[in-house]
Design a protein around this nucleic acid. Structure first.
Lengths: 216, 216, 216, 216
DNA sequence: TATGAATGAGATTTCATTCAT
DNA sequence: AATGAATGAAATCTCATTCAT
């Protein structure tokens, strides 16, 4: 990589960091391109050499941040698995990842607010156009399918819907609780949430012929 | 009510309708106050006689729309109950209301998009500042507590959390599915979702010592 | 007319005058809307209450200025006719108007440069879209036709083409001479040009088989 | 000529062609130097090694294009003369060249629009500063003088003015007609225009006291 | 010579808000 | 109470030009 290429990457990163900081402090709409450039230490026109407009830099950030986050969670799971002598049941893995993400985001509210309810979007959608150079972005659904199959779990249609539902439930509930502290504290909510996750997961994993009795 | 008071209310409503139409078609941030006034057939300055700024009219709309929606759901439930000879179990009531809301919103995507993830916010929060003159807004949590108690269900802490979780899960999942048609169609998803709601509800309603038999 | 309507017209005129002065001194493209507004003593945003963009104010000016000019020429002709005891032949009227316009424009080079080669455009074209409020704009072709017919001249196809050709020849040649002083002075050129006009006019007015004598 | 000199000329030509295409399609003012360079396949900075600014490349183009055009017309006249057994009267030569130019430009409206009313300017003026390296540019006035003298026509002051007037009349009228199709079609206008040219020319060539017969 | 990243002045345009009528 | 002309700050985006490589 030439020196000038390095400089370009540095500038791009400076712009991304600057934009992230402004978006999370004063908000997307109140952030001006001039402010992003100024904070990044470049001229206003330079911004346009790297991004078409504010939307583009926001999308790049969402992809970038959510992919980073998921990687961190998976790495943490790997480390956990390495330390154990016994295998971890799939259900526990699910809860482990959920717990990692929730804990992480509760400590970085700015990040939570930013990727907010875009988490699913960020992960499910970006195999497509926005992945761009961030080719390390993960298709979470494909990943989960693989992981479960590797653990001997049959990924039925029902299981797919369950995964989807768990993600939505978890992200939405935690978003509310972390940001609004309502109706309980996160500490109090966590065990309850995990029991819900386990409940739903088990129900999906169970053989249909002997289902958890759903309706009387 | 004097004629001039009637005129004031008419103007206010014209502004609200105009704003709603613009917010749902071209978006909140791209909607200008000038456009709202023009569409409502009043002068720009008149806007400021009724609302402080764009935020204020948006909040008034959220409260107004979500309260209307919930009232419609409750009315529908009442009509259903009137027609039955046998009482309806609380669990069925929950599913009935969820089904009403989901069906309604899937037929009015603009409304869904508008109140979007503000549903909880709109209902839980507005006992406070935004209820304002729209004093008919419902505190859904209080309502649910009352309704369940009236049905002889003990509203434990666990039940409260369950209600909260069900609302988050339902609204978040349906938002994704209706707007993105992903990962399944709404028709396919509904029965699955309702089985999840029943599962969570029963689990909360059941005595802890003898949990709803899950599986395995 | 209310006071506020008067003020609006004053502002509009202030903007037109300001734009004209700047267009003729520093040129259309180098003139900024900010400068027009500043010179007119109004805020930048006010410009946009009166004109869509720079093009629009330019077109308004062309129409305005060329229509004024033509009216002045016709008024001068009327005054001349009033003073005479004998009627003026059509050919002389043509030369009179040409002379008036050339003399006038040679004394206001800025105006000449501005309406420059738009004279024909300004007069022939603006029956349509640009006439706008300047409803006093003249359709020169229609006018000439009428005037000639009133003098008993038959306006044949050949005469129409002659009028068109004379206008083009006169405006184009005078533009070059006044602005570039090349290849002769205007004083030297005028008698020559008028003889050309007479030559072409007589040739069109004359019966084809027996041409009008040129000189004498 | 060294290889590097050849490359320089190629680059210069690439820039000229690129600029011409852009000027004639999107217009001079809307064409950016970046676009010219990109289309020519060179870097933006390279532009400045060949031309000072946009004005300079435009002037180079006007000189280049109009000189080419005139050469083509004169070559066509030469070929015509070669094919004839009898000499061609000067008046016919004038009409021949006018016809060649009009026909050519009506088939290349982009070129017409570009050199538009700059034709005279391009030819009369460029003996001076803009001729530059394009030393093949013709001084049309000098040329016409020579040609007429060679044919035995005395080039009086009156003849000079006539030539000038004919050029202005022809270019201005044809510009209007070709670009606006107004007030007649070119096909209909041509014979009329040529009769005007002949009329003016004969009038200049004839002894003042005994005018040339106009028609027939 | 050639490059093209970087610059930053400056142009256009929008719009919330005020205030005289 | 209602109007809407006027404001002018602020935002977006462009582009001629420079200069280090």
């Amino acid at each position: 990589m030439t020196v000038s290429e390095q400089k370009k990457i540095q500038k791009r990163n400076a712009l991304l960091n600057s934009a992230y900081e402004l978006f999370t402090t004063i908000g997307f709409h109140k952030t001006t391109i001039g402010a992003i450039a100024r904070k990044a230490g470049v001229a206003k026109g330079t911004f346009y050499l790297y991004f078409k407009d504010k939307e583009e830099i926001r999308n790049a950030l969402i992809v970038h941040k959510s992919s980073h986050l998921l990687h961190a969670a998976l790495n943490a799971l790997d480390r956990e698995l390495d330390q154990r002598s016994t295998p971890m049941p799939p259900e526990d893995k699910l809860v482990f990842i959920a717990d990692y993400l929730i804990t992480f985001l509760s400590q970085d509210v700015a990040l939570l607010r930013f990727i907010s309810k875009n988490l699913t979007w960020g992960l499910f959608m970006n195999s497509g156009q926005y992945a761009g150079e961030a080719s390390d972005v993960i298709d979470f659904r494909a990943f989960a399918t693989h992981a479960l199959q590797a653990d001997g779990v049959e990924v039925s249609r029902r299981m797919e819907l369950t995964i989807f539902t768990i993600i939505e439930m978890t992200s939405s509930a935690c978003y509310s609780i972390i940001l609004e502290g309502n109706p309980v504290t996160l500490t109090e909510y966590k065990p309850f949430l995990y029991s819900c996750i386990r409940l739903l997961f088990r129900n999906a994993a169970a053989p249909i012929s002997s289902p958890a009795p759903l309706v009387g």
